[in-house]
């Protein structure tokens, strides 16, 4: 018998196992192959500390930069909105916290489900607007390749299916919940092998930039 429950059980069981395996192994490979490569030892006399400057740059590069805000305010604001919305939906929705607790054994308090709902709606609208802007803006369009559209899609689908599942807009519920989990599994599988890796590598890149500048005693 092939029912929506069978589907849900598969995505929650073997499907999740496959996705988690590829995600964890993939991310570790991608990070370690960079980190193990290392840098050539720098024999020059350091003119400042690496640690403080590195951490500071992690923060400063996260804040919007004036120039690019003036040039393309929509891209900057939209980018912030959906990144924050995505992270809030991912990490502060109570059912997600239960999932993280069951895998990693760590938990934190969530926020009201209907607040997450409102934030998700804003995020989904913003993501659609961002895609529209990417397609209609000649420069952005020129700069976009298939991978950009693919990563947009696998980011968008979990938000969309999550919203549909929360509002039970597809019947029966196990089907829509299964689709939501499957879409996240797709994201997990593609994550290590696409530019989605930036969610991890941005830390290394920003810290390294700051640390290099710090060592040379210049502002980064």
């Amino acid at each position: 018998m092939s029912t929506s429950i069978d589907f849900l059980l598969w995505v929650r069981g073997p499907g999740f196992d496959i996705a988690l395996f590829i995600f964890v192994v993939g991310v570790l490979i991608r990070l370690l192959e960079v980190l193990i490569l290392g840098r050539k030892p720098d024999y020059s006399e350091p003119r400042g500390a690496e640690l403080g400057a590195g951490l500071l740059t992690l923060v400063t590069r996260t804040a919007p930069e004036g120039g690019s805000f003036k040039r393309s305010p929509f891209t900057v604001v939209g980018g912030y909105i959906w990144h924050i919305g995505f992270l809030v939906s991912l990490f502060l929705f109570v059912p997600h916290i239960e999932l993280i607790d069951s895998v990693l054994g760590i938990r934190w308090p969530g926020i009201a489900s209907n607040l997450v709902d409102a934030i998700s709606a804003v995020t989904i609208v913003t993501l659609v607007a961002m895609l529209f802007s990417r397609l209609s803006h000649p420069v952005k369009r020129f700069l976009s390749g298939p991978e950009d559209y693919l990563t947009w899609l696998v980011t968008f689908l979990p938000m969309l299916t999550g919203y549909l599942a929360y509002h039970r807009m597809i019947d029966p519920y196990p089907l829509v919940l299964g689709l939501h989990i499957l879409s996240v599994e797709l994201l997990m599988v593609l994550f290590p092998f696409t530019k989605l890796m930036h969610a991890f590598t941005f830390i290394i890149a920003r810290w390294y930039n700051g640390a290099m500048a710090g060592r040379r005693g210049v502002q980064s």
């Binding site: 069981g13 395996f21 964890v24 490979i29 370690l32 239960e98 069951s102 895998v103």
Partner: peptide, 23 residues
């Protein structure tokens, strides 16, 4: 309901080990 019915989460250590080895 949101918790996966997964064998792997109970073996996260092995998965991380495999990732580290391959990395």
């Amino acid at each position: 309901l949101s918790i996966p019915d997964s064998d792997l989460t109970r073996k996260t250590g092995y998965v991380v080990g495999a990732g580290v080895a391959l990395g």
